[in-house]
Simulated assay, not measured.
Amino acid sequence: MKLKDASKKAAIKSKTIDIVFDKGFAGIKMANLAQMVGVSPSTLYVYYKNKEDLIVSVATDLIHSISQESNNEVKETLPFKLKLKTVWLYWLNFSINKSKEMSFLQQLKQSPYYELVPAETKDAKMQLANSLLDLGKSEGLIKDVDNEVLGAVIASLLTETSKLILSKKLTLTKKDNDLMFSMLWDAIKS
């Protein structure tokens, strides 16, 4: 049995994200991916048993990584509004600076592969958001509606803000960030 090389695994993950960004999940062909990474197809199968395993593994690794990073951004001592703004800015920066990874996650959520991602991974991803929204509701600062409704409002504004920045109608500056966050705040505050 061949040993797994961390740098090869990282290259496979990176190229998979690139392919999904350019062609969607249907664009992943294991033989082509192996060629792009510079390994034989049999070596690729040492890392992943099939395309489904590859996609779910890349998704799981990506979700774990960004969940941990976004959790690390939020300082417990901050008041609620600043915690929310910190998470907002993390995701805005991620959307802009890691657009391929963000595209992968957006496509994943709309695909049958999302159902194959382990429940504990999806739960960990939502834990910070749900606990933060629950805190805001308990403090009477945001609307007392279902977290999925609040999440939809936040995600929609985040997506549209990143589109405005990518199309250069807004910039990733404190002034524009504050403007867009204030619009988000106005939409969800009590």
Rank of each mutant, 00 (worst) to 15 (best):
K2P: 15
D5R: 01
A6V: 15
A10W: 09
A10C: 12
A11C: 11
S14I: 13
K15C: 08
K15S: 09
V20M: 11
K23D: 06
A26M: 14
A26K: 15
G27M: 03
I28P: 02
N32G: 13
A34N: 07
V39I: 08
P41C: 07
V46L: 06
V46A: 06
V46M: 01
Y47G: 04
Y47F: 04
Y48H: 00
K51S: 13
D53P: 03
D53Q: 04
L54V: 00
T60F: 05
I63F: 02
H64M: 11
S67V: 12
S67M: 02
N72M: 04
F80I: 13
L82K: 12
L82H: 13
K83P: 08
L84I: 02
W88H: 04
W91H: 10
L92H: 01
F94G: 09
S95R: 06
F104C: 10
F104Y: 11
L108E: 09
Y114V: 14
A119K: 02
D123N: 07
Q127N: 15
N130A: 04
S131A: 09
S131H: 09
S138H: 07
L141R: 07
D146H: 13
L150P: 02
L158W: 05
L158H: 09
E160L: 13
S162Y: 06
S162K: 03
L164P: 06
I165L: 05
S167C: 02
K168H: 10
K169M: 01
K169W: 03
L172C: 02
T173D: 11
T173W: 04
K174R: 11
L179M: 04
L179K: 14
L184Q: 01
W185A: 06
S190Y: 11
